[in-house]
Design a protein around this nucleic acid. Structure first.
Length: 312
DNA sequence: AACAAGCCCAACCGCCCGGCA
DNA sequence: CTGCCGGGCGGTTGGGCTTGT
């Protein structure tokens, strides 16, 4: 999209490369977003923290749903926007898998225009109907709701009340077919971190004589979650009993900013925790940080599928 | 086939808010 | 109380892609 450029601090701007994505994914899945401003330094990225955060939240985070919106999703957006206005982040909380940025984009590019046309159409017909001696309501196709016009239920584009959740894999008409979406979910739940699991399992073997054990890291991460007790949000666990990430917890690792879990890696070095990060980055295998295929291959076309990052 | 116009969306920017010292 | 810092949010934009002529 945007032409890559460098600002006066030497930070890169513009389109993210697959390699940058891989570095960010590898780092955040491993250490979480403990400090977005500091994170790029330790992740080996010449990006500002804000850019990293945005990239992660809007594009790289697992379970992000992209592509076509279902009728029900659009209906939800319209109704919520009518109630909440441009509070995209709040609206996004009602649409699992959708980001505020994407909803905002969809609103500006599609829904606003659609509603605008509908409103113009309706207003025109309201005037016409008022002057129409037959008194029929040409607005019967629309439901006016605080200035917004929703297509009536007989419209084929509006989902019925009995429709199952459009976000369910079975009914999703998003960019991913239902089977694709299911597969995608499974990729995250079962294989999303295989590339890390394999590496960490291997590391476990290699450093088994050392005091550090990755399971300490994961169990401590869970401890943090437990510490937060009932306030802790619902968690998603990757169940892989034999895996060092068997207790992988998305919130504790990715969204929990507590530094506590970092203590678990201290045995790696006897130096400061920041050095531990630097040292530990060196342990991330090259295959996580460098392209896995030749750049000549389509993977590295400008339109590469970010999902590939989760399918390594 | 070539070009123009419009569409779409990833990414940036600036502002605001809450936490903390 | 105040200032600083990091995170979050909404508005805007750059440029690749698609569609129409």
């Amino acid at each position: 999209m945007r032409t890559p450029s460098w600002d006066n601090r030497g930070l890169k701007k513009g389109t993210w490369t697959p390699e940058e994505d891989r570095k960010l994914v590898a780092y955040v899945t491993r250490y979480g977003s403990w400090n977005w401003r500091q994170l790029p330094r330790f992740a080996g990225l010449a990006r500002c923290g804000k850019s990293c955060r945005l990239r992660w939240l809007n594009y790289l985070k697992p379970n992000i749903k992209r592509g076509n919106y279902t009728d029900k999703e659009e209906e939800t957006i319209i109704k919520l926007h009518e109630k909440l206005g441009n509070r995209w982040s709040v609206i996004a909380t009602h649409l699992p898998g959708r980001t505020d940025n994407e909803i905002k984009n969809h609103w500006h590019t599609t829904l606003k225009k659609r509603l605008g046309k509908k409103a113009v159409y309706t207003e025109t017909n309201v005037k016409a109907s008022k002057s129409n001696s037959f008194g029929s309501n040409p607005d019967k196709d629309c439901i006016q709701n605080n200035g917004f016009f929703l297509e009536a239920s007989h419209s084929p584009t509006v989902s019925k009340a009995s429709d199952p959740d459009p976000l369910s894999p079975e009914l999703s008409s998003s960019e991913f077919s239902s089977s694709d979406y299911t597969t995608r979910q499974n990729l995250f739940l079962e294989d999303g971190f295989d590339f890390l699991d394999a590496y960490l399992a291997d590391m476990n073997q290699n450093i088994s004589t050392e005091s550090f054990h990755i399971s300490q890291f994961t169990s401590q991460a869970n401890g943090i979650d437990n510490f937060h007790g009932s306030d802790a949000p619902k968690t998603m666990e990757c169940v892989r009993p034999e895996s060092p990430l068997s207790y992988y917890n998305e919130n504790s690792l990715v969204e929990n900013d507590d530094f506590g879990f970092l203590e678990a890696i201290e045995p790696i070095t006897e130096h400061s925790w920041t050095e531990a990060f630097v040292a530990d980055m060196s342990l991330i295998p090259n295959e996580l940080l460098v392209p896995l295929v030749n750049e000549s291959e389509s993977y590295f076309s400008s339109a590469y599928d970010v999902d590939d990052i989760w399918c390594v």
